[in-house]
Amino acid sequence: MLREKEHDIEKLHEIARQLRIDSLRMIHRAGGGHPGGSLSAADLVTALYFHEMNLCPQEPDWPDRDRFIMSKGHGCPVLYAALARLGYFDRSHLETLRKFGSILQGHPDMRKTPGLDSTSGSLGQGLSVGLGMALMGLRDQKPYRVFVMLGCGELDEGQIWEAAMSGAKFRVANLTAIVDYNRLQLDGTNDQVMPLEPLDDKWRSFGWNALRIDGHDMRAILDALHRAAAHDQGPTVIIAKTIKGKGVSFMEDQLNWHGVAPSTEQLEIALAELDP
């Protein structure tokens, strides 16, 4: 049975808020993980998994389902939280993130976690994997779409641009890349580490339909996903400007919240902000 799509913007906001809370709880319990990139991607993941994608959680391998690859695999806590909420696995697993024997690995493992469409987390590879999936879908005249979430720092990888060229060549209109453009990578801002701009011009010159949106504006996200679906000439990239650590004041736009778990005290403050 297809999962019912949520159209109400307020309800989507509420889901995103819950996913943020779940992500922080998971990372805190794990004692490690990546809060910044989980929170920045929360609205985008919510829009995909609770509105846009055709999914059937009771049948994770349903051949016609839409596919999603968290190529920036370190952002997986928010994806795991979404999958649990949709019923791919019991919520109790969220407490086991990164622990020995868990179905929830530190970076996504499609063989361990129900609902994952790909193993990912080595930066630069997910767009190629998604392209392979999209190309097979086109070839077999399948109705599914493929979504790949990329980190902005991930765009430094050369393989991204190999895949970008191939995506245009094969005219995979069923492929949508989403850049979680929070402008912070591990060692500094994109501008400090490796400047990316003019980013939409780059993608356009590679033959992609490029859209630039506010990645925390739910209406804008839904609109961009619909426009990507309507574009039938080739692949689309949605460059979603986001804030790393979005939703928690002391994490927002802070480099040092890329890959550390909050302490118990910090978690309490964060949850109080997210759950007023």
Partner: peptide, 22 residues
């Protein structure tokens, strides 16, 4: 599928195809 002189992309694209049952 000829992906040009781009072996890394080729390898991962093939992974995507295999995930889809190829």
């Amino acid at each position: 599928f000829n992906v040009g002189v781009a072996e890394q992309n080729m390898m991962a694209m093939a992974a995507g195809a295999a995930i889809c049952g190829k």
